[in-house]
């Protein structure tokens, strides 16, 4: 019963609203008509006619104006009546107010969409150019091959990086034991990637981020510098204060790429560690080629990849 009565009342409401809309429309038409009539005025022949005819015409105009205004008054009265019967809609939920949100009018939606479209286009352009240039580099270490490449090659690449954590820990422990003057520790502050902290004697500290058994990132800093931010968290991005170690970080990145061996990953890490250990005489060895200690106020920062001889950056072949 209740639902029926509710249904009836809602239908009534709808009927009233429809009526109100119709009345408003009628009112609008009549008011428009009035303005049109006034706008038309007495007509074009007003200048050439005699006085009497002009007066008659005026009377006719005023008469029609009067009747139009009466109609308008009548319409307003009816609209009022219907308006009284309308019940204000109770707000059912907050979502009703969303339609009242004026912010949408104020957001410069069009210009923002335009800018983002232009930017995405530019990004596409640059990305395709970069892909062209980078594809010329034969040294690829990511598991994502060009789709035109063979699928079987793809599977082999993945294994070096998906190695269980225990294997990595074991390898690091072996390296630690093997090199007497290096202390290597492993931690996992960045999720499943291992971060190796190496301290080489009293010369330098290095931080190596591994993905499985593949070296991803190397940073070298001085013995008195720290690899942590102010909060104590591990920081792998900040550069060393000293030019020497900035240079060595660059060299280490080159070595890391050189020693990349996807099919024998632990040999890759071992060779890299052995190469890094060659820096224990960073400050005490003269350059192999020119025999001096300093070139441009820098010691020999390059260690040859095959025999670990010290060379100045400008003296290497």
């Amino acid at each position: 019963m209740e639902t029926e009565s509710k249904l009836k009342s809602t239908l009534d409401q709808i009927e009233h609203i429809n009526q109100a809309i119709r009345h408003t429309q009628r009112l609008r038409t009549h008011v428009c008509q009035i303005f049109r009539d006034i706008g038309d005025g007495l007509g074009e022949a007003a200048k050439s006619e005699e006085e009497q005819q002009a007066q008659e015409r005026q009377k006719v105009l005023l008469g029609s104006l009067r009747s139009s205004l009466e109609t308008v008054g009548h319409d307003i009265g009816e609209l009022d009546k219907v308006g009284q019967t309308l019940v204000p809609v109770s707000p059912s939920a907050n979502c009703d107010h969303v339609s009242l949100d004026p912010i949408l009018d104020r957001t410069p939606l069009y210009s923002q969409v335009n800018t983002s479209y232009k930017r995405t286009n530019k990004m596409h352009e640059f990305a395709s150019l970069a892909a062209n240039i980078l594809s010329q580099n034969a040294l690829k270490r990511s598991p994502h091959q060009h789709p035109a490449g063979g699928k079987r090659v793809k599977r082999h690449m993945n294994t070096a990086s998906m190695v269980p954590q225990a294997v990595v820990d074991q390898l690091v422990a072996t390296l630690d034991r093997q090199h007497q003057d290096m202390r290597i520790t492993v931690s996992r502050p960045l999720g499943s990637c291992a971060v190796m902290q190496m301290v080489l004697g009293r010369v330098l500290k290095a931080q190596v981020v591994l993905r499985g058994l593949v070296i991803e990132w190397v940073k070298v800093k001085g013995i008195n510098e720290e690899f942590s931010t102010e909060n104590g968290k591990v920081d792998i991005w900040s550069k060393s204060r000293y030019e020497v170690f900035q240079k060595i970080s660059d060299h280490a990145a080159a070595a890391m790429l050189h020693y990349y061996a996807p099919f024998m990953p632990d040999i890759g890490i071992r060779s890299f560690t052995l190469w890094l250990q060659g820096y224990s005489n960073l400050f005490s060895a003269p350059c192999h080629k020119c025999g001096k200690y300093l070139q441009n106020a820098m010691p020999p920062t390059w260690r040859d990849l095959r025999n670990r001889d010290p060379y100045h950056d400008g003296c290497r072949q």
Binding site: R202, V203, G222, I223, N224, R241, Y242, V244, F245, N281, L282, F283, S284, P299
Partner: peptide, 9 residues
Amino acid sequence: CPCMVAVDC
């Protein structure tokens, strides 16, 4: 600055 041990450098 980078070196902390005199005998090395």
